[in-house]
Design a protein around this nucleic acid. Structure first.
Lengths: 249, 249
DNA sequence: CGGGCAATTGAAATACATCAAGGCGTGTGG
DNA sequence: CCACACGCCTTGATGTATTTCAATTGCCCG
């Protein structure tokens, strides 16, 4: 879906309303607020955003970058990670269309993170100061953001639980199911098939394993007839069994 | 220090001003705001809190509990964790005096977490609704909270990095150093010695290892003369070398 | 056609877990 | 006061999940 129409969101400033994920997250809320302030004849051209496009494998935000902007993914897949100087790194979130890049968070930027495009990515940047001003005036928008924070914190802790206490099989099965859920919520599943542009290295860095081992577990899952990974997409045949392998939640 | 005067914070409602950690975190800010609102003759008896005491090894907040209260630790050590039904669990933060129990977060409670007393613990509960009201009126207090969230998120991600990518030695050395820093900021270090009330199981659940393995690594660190663990306290002899073992940051 | 990344596969190495036994401190009941 | 049980820690022996190393293949792209 992404590849079929990479320019779907377009490049004009307020083309989000046409975006498939418009309703998904912050974008909708923000734009509706813009509409509201317009009606009120105040701050008419208030919240501007600039659309950027980045080819796959390129960084979107760098670890040291001090950012005055809040970034939201419009199109494509990206990975947010922390890296050690010796090259080890841990991906802590896969960013999909509609996701706010939390390290460029609406209230405070969080340093030390790197965001890298997995596929070609289209993203949008809001000026933090403007977004902040908007948020303070609108309690529901605010609620949405604090809710986002709590959820992100919970997810981070659950990732820690996985990395600390789950086996490779559990982690990988769980990772696939998590992606399937995220994509389903976005209407990006075609039946039981979804895009799967991740390299082994991505999965390895997200699950705390090595690419080699990820490959072995994946072929096991495939030989057992649970999934089929091919041509940068994955089909889930036996979701029930996959859930069983992913272990308790 | 904790054991010497467990009732240091007292049990009256606004005894925090005498607390060693009063200036450390939210308490100070909250209480100053109370003072401010008093001066303004509004909401005079606004923010009430109730002090609770819990003996070691007892739960403070349960996983399923819906909480209308925000909890702050006044005295003692506690652990916040997520558990799997089969008993595996991951501790994601050690809570020390002055720490806000983030799963009872100021804006939203976060479910699925368990908070357990390690030592005897004294904590204080604020009604969320009251705290929330207070926060909205006071931007600096608000800034403080969003800053807390960002920091907590960063820490969670760094924990994930450790669990996913660091060796047992790195994790344990890093864990000890982290505690030393936290305690130092609170003025709870006596030279290079600090309280260390954690059981092997706690350290294991915080580092994603088994108690047996933690024991082996600890005795290695001790034999190498880097630290000495004895009588529920730990002394750091060679912080430099410990940092080297903890690996890059 | 060749060169370079990505994935697969097998063999060997290793870090950590599991199992099991013993010791030490602490509380408890006789 | 002693005997005893119990929880916690230590230590060694063994087991295993995952890593590391290495060789091979396929594929994309010039």
């Amino acid at each position: 879906m992404l590849d079929q129409d990479p320019a779907f969101c377009g490049v004009e400033v307020d083309s989000c309303s046409g975006c498939l994920n418009y309703e998904f997250n912050l974008c909708a809320a923000v734009n509706k607020k813009i509409a509201l302030t317009r009606n009120l004849e105040e701050n008419a051209s208030g919240l501007q955003s600039i659309v950027h496009t980045v080819p796959s494998r390129r960084p979107i935000c760098h670890a040291k970058e001090w950012s005055d902007f809040v970034t939201i993914v419009c199109e494509g897949w990206a990975a947010s990670s922390i890296a050690l100087p010796d090259g080890r790194r841990q991906i802590h979130s896969i960013l999909l269309p509609g996701d706010v890049v939390l390290s460029t968070g609406p209230f405070n930027p969080v340093f030390g993170h790197t965001v890298e495009a997995i596929t070609d990515v289209v993203y949008r940047r809001y000026k933090r100061s403007e977004l902040e001003a908007l948020i303070f005036g609108h309690p529901d928008l605010f609620k949405r953001l604090t809710g986002m924070w709590s959820e992100a914190w919970l997810q981070a802790n659950q990732l820690a639980l996985s990395l600390g206490r789950r086996t490779a099989h559990e982690r990988i099965a769980g990772f696939i199911l998590m992606l399937a859920n995220s994509l389903a919520r976005r209407g990006m599943m075609l039946g039981d098939t979804m895009e799967f542009p991740l390299r082994l290295k991505h999965i390895a860095d997200a699950t705390g394993l090595t690419p080699v081992h990820v490959s072995k577990v994946q072929t096991e899952l495939q030989r057992a007839g649970l999934v089929k990974i091919k041509d940068r997409s994955i089909t889930i045949f036996d979701r029930e069994e996959l859930r069983r392998i992913a272990g308790p939640h």
